[in-house]
Amino acid sequence: MNKLNSLLLRPPLPASFFIFRQSHILVKSDSKRIPITTTTNNTTTNANTIITNNIFFSPRFYSAEAGLTRSNIEARIIDIIKSFDKVDPKKVSPHSKFADDLGLDSLDTVEVVMNIEEDFSIEIPDKEADEIRSIKDAVDYISKRDEAH
């Protein structure tokens, strides 16, 4: 247990930078066991019972992800609009306009824009929300907003 503890304290970076994968801190198989003679006390110890040299630390970085790609945003918006029950899913294409192609009235458009807002966790101010009249407008607007996710 002491060995394990000293092992965990070894990495030069703070422990929070690593997610320890338990499967990698397992006892090594006999075939790979190499007896190591330590110089200090002149006894042979099986230093490899716990893997010391082969530990695989998988770093996980908590930095921000790269922004959404345009195709990703488009696919999500199309999904939102297809799930809207007044819309015929077959008519939805990346270039559809809410009023002309999909037959939505102003109240429906507000609802659709709200659904998009909720899905991307952003708030769209009134002025800009009024200008979103097609799927393309929505994709353009969302790709401009960095905090959308």
């Binding site: 102003s106 507000v110 824009v113 709200m114 009134d126 009024d130």
Partner: peptide
Amino acid sequence: NRKSILSIYRQLLREVHK
């Protein structure tokens, strides 16, 4: 006007959602 009604509708939807 039409715009103010839609604006109220939008804000109501947002509040109710929250």
